[in-house]
């Protein structure tokens, strides 16, 4: 291969992939919760992506493609150093959190909006099992489609939907808790009474349909 292949490739890579460096770093942080490890992960991801850039087809979303590589690098590293957290452990963590029983306060929402700083949100995310944190970050922060998230996470779309659904409610609950503006006992939402006043609590789990099963 002559250097000009590399030079062309590099220019294309710098134009198409490099703009997603911040997003990659955010995703790496969401996975690792550690700045140094995220840094490392992103470096390896970008080099790998550059080497594999010929396999990237234009038209697919470069960000989602990079995230898939990043996730693979992350999992390979975890497997190598024996720190892989599997789904069972994640589920165990949910039980520990007991999040299913937690209500979240639905108002005054403005208080949440004002007080929910980046640190607070990150702290709340950090208390969530990785799979749920990952799904929420990919959907809510990075705006990936369910299909793209399924490819990054290596799970069926139904699982993605379930993780987003539960993850969002977990995050909102943990955030409300850390802001100290929770709480009442969880009540099933009365569907026959649509006009709820502010200050009421709505259920965390809107549905237990099969499609949202893990």
């Amino acid at each position: 291969m002559w250097p000009f292949h590399d030079a062309d490739r590099r220019r294309r890579f710098e134009r198409e992939a490099l703009p997603h460096l911040d997003a990659c770093y955010r995703f790496a942080l969401a996975l690792t919760r550690d700045a140094a490890e995220a840094d490392d992960l992103v470096q390896e991801t970008m080099l790998r992506a550059f080497r594999a850039f010929d396999s990237y087809t234009e038209g697919t979303r470069c960000k989602a493609w990079l995230f898939r590589i990043l996730k693979n690098v992350f999992l390979n590293r975890r497997r190598t150093d024996g720190r892989e957290v599997d789904l069972e452990e994640s589920l165990g963590a949910i039980q520990e959190l007991g999040w299913e029983d937690r209500p979240f306060y639905r108002s005054p929402e403005d208080a949440v909006l004002l007080a929910a700083t980046r640190d607070r949100i990150e702290e709340a995310l950090g208390r969530m099992p990785r799979d749920f944190r990952e799904a929420v970050v990919l959907a809510d922060v990075e705006g990936l489609s369910y299909q793209e998230i399924a490819e990054v996470m290596g799970t069926p779309i139904g699982t993605v939907m379930s993780r987003i659904h539960r993850g969002r409610r977990m995050l909102r609950s943990l955030l409300g808790e850390s802001l100290g503006i929770l709480q009442e006992t969880l009540q099933e939402r009365p569907h026959e009474a649509p006009n709820r006043g502010p200050g009421q609590v709505i259920p965390l789990v809107a549905t237990r349909e099969g499609r949202h099963d893990l």
């Binding site: 590099r10 911040d22 840094d39 970008m46 980046r118 970050v137």
Partner: peptide, 24 residues
């Protein structure tokens, strides 16, 4: 809110420089 707060996180400039350097 989540998107705005977390979306403002940027890669450290040292990371960006290092990646660019390694690519080049």
């Amino acid at each position: 809110l989540v998107r705005q707060r977390l979306g403002e996180v940027r890669a450290p400039s040292s990371l960006r420089e290092s990646v660019v350097h390694r690519l080049r």
